[in-house]
């Protein structure tokens, strides 16, 4: 080969892996009435949208804090605030998942703090819950991002429910068809269940009866709240 001293690990050739924010956005699509914002360059959101849209053949809207060079230098708090406000105005979500990118992680934005301050300033009835998912693209793959988002949603919402009332199911990264099948099996067995995430409708839906700002379906926040022991 003539590659003495060269480690094959230095080049990734046609790897079948994607970056962690994509996995997080996929998982968030399975939470009812939620939107994802990627805190980074406009391209992160658009590329991940393009990839998910091309794969699932469903509309997937993901917002971006749309970094400029100034944002990269002075910090992304203001840009993220604007992004959150605009997402709420346009989509009226009940929850917004904010996933980070290589850029925002490396410049050291304290996203949890920014979200807490933003929520404090906008504490109205219409304000959605804000969930931070840490997904620097240089750590792990889309699978890690997926689980990070699931964990973050559970951390933020699960308050616990009565014992013996049902099962919480975390199927991992499976197809909408598999999720649907799993639900059918659980229903047939008469097991009350909450599956997180559930994108069996949002990423495999039929024709629209009315315009869907956020596609229907997904795990409701109430179901997530009931997960775990009280």
């Amino acid at each position: 080969m003539g590659t003495e001293g060269i480690n094959a690990r230095d080049v990734a050739r046609n790897p079948c892996k994607l970056c962690s924010p994509l996995g997080a956005c996929l998982a968030l699509r399975g939470v009812r009435d939620s939107m994802a914002v990627i805190h980074g360059s406009q391209g992160c959101a658009t590329y991940i949208r393009r990839y998910l849209i091309g794969h699932f053949r469903e509309p997937v809207d993901i917002a971006s804090s749309s970094f400029s060079d100034r944002t990269a230098i002075f910090g992304g708090a203001a840009a993220l605030g604007t992004a959150l406000d605009n997402v709420v105005r346009q989509y009226r979500p009940r929850m917004v998942g904010v996933t980070t990118s290589c850029l925002s992680e490396t410049i050291g934005d304290d996203v949890s703090l920014i979200l807490r301050e933003h929520a404090a300033e906008r504490s109205g009835e219409d304000s959605p819950g804000l969930v931070h998912v840490s997904t620097p693209s240089y750590r792990g793959t889309h699978v890690d991002g997926f689980h990070a988002a699931v964990t973050a949603v559970v951390d933020a919402y699960a308050r616990g429910g009565e014992r013996g009332r049902g099962v919480a199911v975390f199927p991992g990264m499976v197809s909408p068809a598999d999720t649907r099948h799993l639900k059918e099996i659980l229903d047939d067995c008469g097991v009350a269940h909450a599956i997180l995430p559930d994108y069996s409708e949002s990423l495999d839906g039929g024709a629209w009866q009315s315009f869907e700002r956020i596609p229907g379906g997904g795990t409701s926040l109430e179901d997530v709240a009931g997960m775990g022991p009280r």
Binding site: G43, A45, A63, S65, T82, N86
Partner: peptide, 16 residues
């Protein structure tokens, strides 16, 4: 103009 944050632009980035 630079895309508005949170507007869900269809544009990608410089790299693209």
């Amino acid at each position: 103009r630079q895309s508005l944050a949170g507007a869900v632009s269809q544009r990608a980035c410089v790299f693209c």
